[in-house]
Design a protein around this nucleic acid. Structure first.
Lengths: 172, 172
DNA sequence: GTCTATAAGTAGATAGAC
DNA sequence: GTCTATCTACTTATAGAC
């Protein structure tokens, strides 16, 4: 991947996250990235190719993010790491995740990247003696998702107070 | 409000919810609503006026939706009604609520319509002897929000199993 | 004469081609 | 890197209905 290609993707990510896909023109991307508009089409064929590339990045980034949880063998640590997940996101990646959450509302967006994560949570709750481990996992996943949204929309501080509270709720 | 004005709003709602605000042209709205494009601007001044009208509707609809909870005096019923909230939404209103959740990701969207709801939940938990009533309320609000999103994206059935589980969790 | 509606425009932006 | 056919939000001219 050339520097200019990377630069185009980085700018597209930021603009898509802020102004939406349809609210962002290819000419604006080119201008902000300091490249000619034609280069965008050379690298990505059409505007949608840009989005596809960003979504592909997301698949890999989510995989890396939940990997340490999937290989964890201590059920308590699985839960603790899961709750910590949204708080551990570097702020520089917020636009990236914002875009992913926005895209979830598009009709043709592939879901279920978190399926292995929920399976692992189920395993953890099961191991800790919870009877309805699956439901517990789904509820905790809901909480984590909603906290993530809160962090992305209003900043980490808006949710920080909840972290200790939830940890205690599940691990004491 | 004339029939044609209502018709324009109804079509705009559906198209904005499906294709996004920037992904929807005024000409398409006019065509689908069976009116001339000019009529949109006569009634709503500019395209944004359409959105404003829809958001205004939302403010009122949310108020009506949470009102029965706010006037409830039995704390257990407050929690039960709150958990029931997303499941009680008529399916015909799903596009409407989808649009509201999408708009939450826009920068200039007014938040905090749910503040009185969280206050009431806090009051309920406090009344039931919970020590950290405020945090409990925030967590339950997170769960309800995330379940709502699940219902709007994947249908009511995808979340139905969680309802009894959460009710039992909080009310037994 | 105001209100509701339309059809036919305009100037600028847009994705993509050359 | 210039060009263009198409689409965009919005306007103007016009006119019947109450």
């Amino acid at each position: 991947m050339t520097d200019k290609k990377k630069q185009i993707l980085a700018v597209a990510l930021e603009l898509f996250a802020n102004d939406g896909f349809n609210g962002t023109s290819t000419s604006k991307i080119a201008k902000e990235a300091g490249v000619s508009e034609g280069l965008i089409f050379r690298h990505f064929e059409h505007k949608n190719g840009l989005l596809n590339a960003l979504v592909q990045q997301a698949v890999e980034r989510i995989r890396l993010l939940i990997e340490p949880i999937l290989i964890e063998t201590d059920p308590k640590k699985v839960i603790q790491k899961s709750i910590d997940l949204p708080f551990a996101l570097p702020e520089s990646e917020y636009p990236f995740w914002k875009l992913q959450f926005k895209l979830k509302w598009e009709n043709d967006y592939e879901q279920d990247k978190m399926r292995p994560f929920i399976e692992k949570l189920t395993w953890a709750f099961s191991n800790l003696g919870y009877i309805q481990a699956r439901k517990e996992a789904e509820v905790l996943n809901h909480i984590i998702e909603s906290i993530s949204i809160g962090i992305l929309r209003e900043g980490r501080k808006s949710q920080e107070g909840l972290k200790e509270f939830i940890l205690r709720k599940y691990l004491k």
